[in-house]
């Protein structure tokens, strides 16, 4: 057992990638399966517990989990030598693994983009971290909500591609 071998470091980056991914998708599913459906049932005077305390902390771990996942994922794909082939979905390479991981990487990248460029900037307006007029807040909430739902939908095929590439294709 060699702890400084390239194979060990590749395994270590895969482990960090999975840890980061759980941090990210765990919070994504918390927002979509727990927090958002619960908000209408919470009495108005108790809502600030979510909007002022829980949501900002959850969003912190959510967006940085997304960042750590894409960074460790790209390093991992580079170390494994399939980054280039996966980016072009393995087309022409007749390699089902690279096609599968490529789809997973593209889906994950779209989701990462949604987190940093749609969900987070709009959630800052919704939560009052940056000032916004009421109608602007409403619109921001709609965009952030739909981007979050889109990511929940995409997480299902994304995980098929990721796990499939590791264990089947």
């Amino acid at each position: 057992m060699e702890f400084v071998s390239f194979a060990w470091w590749t395994m270590a980056f895969r482990w960090l990638h999975v840890i980061s991914g759980i941090m990210w998708i765990g919070h994504l599913w918390y927002f979509n399966f727990v927090q958002t459906p619960s908000m209408p049932k919470i009495p108005d005077e108790q809502k600030p517990a979510i909007t002022k305390f829980i949501a900002p902390t959850a969003l912190f771990w959510f967006r940085w989990g997304a960042m750590a996942t894409i960074v460790t994922g790209l390093i991992l794909a580079g170390m494994n030598g399939y980054l280039g082939s996966a980016i072009k979905l393995g087309i022409g390479d007749h390699n089902a693994h690279n096609t599968a991981i490529g789809f997973g990487m593209w889906l994950g990248t779209i989701m990462w983009f949604n987190v940093w460029f749609l969900i987070w900037p709009n959630q800052k307006k919704v939560l009052g971290i940056v000032p916004a007029q009421p109608d602007e807040k409403k619109r921001a909430g709609r965009i952030a909500g739909l981007a979050s739902r889109t990511n929940t939908m995409l997480s299902i095929p994304m995980l098929y591609a990721m796990v499939g590439a590791g264990h089947y294709y």
Binding site: L89, A100, L146, R149, Y160, G164
Partner: peptide, 30 residues
């Protein structure tokens, strides 16, 4: 028309439908 992503249930169903599409795409390409 109502956006299917407004419903959590439809979102999950669409996720599984997209997975079937993905499986077919992987097999078609590879």
């Amino acid at each position: 028309m109502k956006n299917p992503l407004d419903s959590l249930q439809s979102t999950v169903v669409l996720g599984f439908v997209l997975t079937v599409v993905l499986i077919l795409l992987i097999h078609a390409i590879a």
